[in-house]
Each structure stands twice: as C-alpha cells, then as structure tokens.
C-alpha cells in the first residue's frame, strides 16, 4: 500500500504516492483527505496494491476516508445537536401522497381529497389535509388539518377519549372486514397488533382546525368535532373510514383510493 510523501519541485508541491505495501489502509485513508486526487502521482506499486490499477480505486479510498470522517464527527458531536427525524414511509403513506374519493352521509355524497403531509412511523402518527366539497353553501370547499393515531404498539384499538367508549370502538372497528382477521390472529389481545407487518393499517383521524386560516371557528352546517375510524389497505391503496361524533348521524362513510398521478417522490426532513 502506498503512503504519501511530499515532493518539492520548482513548481507547486505535488504529492507522490510511493508504494510501501503492506502499510495499513488507515494510513492511506487518513492521508488521502489532505490531498486532492488530481495532484496524486503513483510510483513503484507492487501489482497487488489497490492504487496500482485505477483511479477509481483512489476514489474508493477517498469515499472511505469521508465515511470515516463522518463517523469521527458523530463521536465528537455537539451534545445539544438535535436528533434527526428521518422521514419514514410505507406503501401509499408518504408525504405528498394523495387519496381521492367520497364521503357518504345519508343520501348525500361529497367529494373528498386527502393530502398526506407527514408520516412518522416511529411515533405511530401521520397528518395531512382533508378537503371536502359542497358541504355547506358558505364554504363550497372546506379544508381541515387532521392528524392520525396509528393503531399498534403506541396506540390501542381502544379510543378512550373523544366521547368514544369501548362499545363505540367495537361497533366501528367491526365494520371493517379485515378487522375479523385480527380477532383471529391476535385473539382478544389486540394490543399486540404490529402495523408494520400486517396488510392493513387501522387509524383514528382527528380534524383540528381549518386550512388555511386556523383561527376560523364554527362553520354553520359543518362540524369536525368528531373523528374517523380508518382502515387502510396497504396493497390496494384503499382507505375506508367511518365518522363518529356522539351527536352526528352514525356511520357516515369515507371511501378513498390512492391517486397515482405521478410516481416521482421528493423528500423533506425536519431540521
């Protein structure tokens, strides 16, 4: 393996790699960052030396050097540097994903579009916007912000809030056909439901405020005081849901399917 030696000439200082195999890779890796590849010259390699044949081997070593540098940085990091919140996704649930469909309320039916804005599988949550058309005359189009609790290790099938008791939960979850399979696989102990491994993801979607102006309160003829029981099928991209609020009409149904407009994916990350 070569080590680096500085050679002084009348012109600029150039760096010469002299093969002195077998010197440890580390010496080489540590040395390489200080020199730009273009100023390297190679002399006297033995044939087994990785620098013997190609410049790409040098590039490889430079990569290793940068990776090693990154590891070293991580060890010596600022103790108050924020932990990264790396973006997460699964199947059709990713930031920028869209679902379109209808909400049925009695004989009425409204167009609905859902925009997924953030997905945190580590926190078992996601959030987005829910657009609904024609619900009231005053607002021909309404958009709300909602967030989701994903049923799994962190959130149970039991809601225990939002005016929903155990029988409400039972009544709604059992409307989803895949729920039967869970009773079979997990028995009564549904706390073991692992959404990462199952074909369906169950969620509760709770709307919080209007978009764009979160300060608007009270819209005559519409309310988002309740929440949706949701079942998402990972393979088909279908979302089924039922709205629940103790004073609202029961079992208003939400039926959405994934919009495959374009299969390009950007990515953002909170800093």
């Amino acid at each position: 393996m070569p080590v680096f030696a500085q050679q002084h000439s009348t012109e600029a200082i150039s760096t010469v790699a002299t093969c002195t195999c077998p010197v440890s890779n580390d010496v080489l890796i540590d040395g390489i960052l200080d020199h730009s590849i273009s100023t390297l010259q190679f002399q006297g390699h033995v044939p087994s030396c990785p620098l013997h044949s190609s410049q790409s081997a040098v590039a490889q070593l430079k990569q290793q050097a940068l990776l090693k540098q990154r590891q070293a940085r991580q060890r010596k990091h600022d103790p108050f540097e924020c932990t990264r919140l790396l973006p997460t996704r699964t199947c059709h649930l990713y930031p920028g994903s869209k679902f379109a469909g209808k909400q049925r309320s009695g004989s009425h039916s409204y167009d609905v579009i859902v925009d997924i804005k953030h997905v945190s599988l580590t926190e078992s949550t996601l959030c987005g916007y829910l657009h609904i058309k024609g619900l009231t005359e005053e607002y021909p189009e309404l958009t709300t912000f909602f967030d989701a609790e994903i049923v799994g290790p962190q959130y149970s099938f039991l809601t225990r809030k939002w005016d929903a008791d155990e029988s409400t939960d039972e009544e709604h979850w059992t409307l989803f056909q895949p729920f039967d399979d869970i009773v079979h696989s997990c028995g009564r102990d549904k706390s073991k439901y692992d959404f990462a491994k199952e074909p369906c993801i169950f969620m509760r979607w709770k709307e919080h405020f209007l978009v764009p102006d979160h300060r608007v309160e009270g819209i005559s003829g519409a309310s988002f005081a309740g929440f949706y029981y949701i079942c998402y099928n990972k393979s088909t991209g279908q979302i089924n849901g039922y709205y629940y609020h103790h004073t609202s009409e029961k079992f208003q149904q939400l039926i959405l399917s994934h919009v495959e407009e374009r299969t390009s994916f950007g990515s953002y990350e909170f800093r």
């Binding site: 924020c82 919140l85 804005k117 953030h118 959030c127 912000f145 967030d147 919080h208 405020f209 978009v211 979160h214 909170f270 800093r271």
Partner: peptide, 13 residues
Amino acid sequence: TRSLSRSVKNLRT
C-alpha cells in the same frame, strides 16, 4: 423554537 417547529401542526398554528 427549533424543537417546536418540527411539527406540521405547530407550523400552521
């Protein structure tokens, strides 16, 4: 504010 801004909800409200 950096910690609090790591949230869609807080950014909107």
